[in-house]
Design a protein around this nucleic acid. Sequence first.
DNA 1: CACCTCGA
DNA 2: TCGAGGTGG
Length: 339
Amino acid sequence: MGSDIGDIVSRESVSFSDMQNRTVAIDANNTLYQFLSIIRQPDGTPLKDSGGRVTSHVSGVFYRMINLFEEGIEPVYVFDGKPPQLKSKTLDERRKIRENSKEKWKKAKARGDTEEAYSQAMRSSKLNRDMVAESKELLRLMGIPCVQAPSEAEAQAAYIVENGDCWASSSQDYDSLLFGTPILIRNLTITGRRKIPGKDRYKEIKPEKIVLEELLNKLDLNREQLVDLAILVGTDFNDGIKGIGPKTALKLIKEHSSGRKVLEVKDIEIENYSEIREIFIEPEVTDEYDINPSDIEWDGVVEFLCEERDFSEDRVVKGLDRLEKAVNELRHQTTFDSF
DNA sequence: CACCTCGA
DNA sequence: TCGAGGTGG
């Protein structure tokens, strides 16, 4: 997923108080996919309503949004548009992996290997159109603004942050930095624990912040050079060069000052090099976005979750109580501050 | 993922 | 009171 430059990106952990009263542009498809793959039964079966429709993503959106509001964070969801043509190979590969994992999941489940079943089920998850539409509907009912990107959501989110309309963008991938987001937040989760697959241990997951300018200063690169570096290592739009990881790529870029020069000296060719660079440096984005929250349709949320998706009314009402309190406090503070 | 329960 | 483990849909 995305480009593999994590090794050279210095992260600092960020507390929720640092994010209070701030707007965050969330990479919607990335987040929904995360929910879909993680919110499962121990054997890998996703949550489903009585009609057999998967509801893991819906559950994830509902609870995560309440928690963010309670932390004083205003979310904006940014959805992917049409993927660039150059991504089709990556998307094809992902589809093959999913199909393969689906088989492995069935087999593991059949022989009672729960651990393996869960991990294969995660890999086999596919976010489909209906799931995206359902999530948008719930977000709309919860008053959360949704932005439709013309192409890559991370590019649009970066643009929104650059324009000063959001404080930071949030995604698990580092690509947002290549698209130029001034601030990237990773692991925007509350319960900071994730099971290590195959082991009986848990890993602490904490939100982390990456400031693009600080990163570039530290690496002593400009943004174009960072993009060049990522392309050498590999992105969603090209395979990396064998034997070149982020550290070697960093050294090479510094030595030769540009990716093109590195390719020239090393006599390597990367197909569609200019086009890939352009995707990151001049991404396709739109100015037609609205990040203003709308009124929460309380009854609509209950109807959507309880009547249509079999959520327990108890839980939903409890959640909405928390949401109401959190939103009142957040909006009250905002009004207070503006005087 | 986040919530809830139950046992130490 | 806390945290591991089960459940939600």
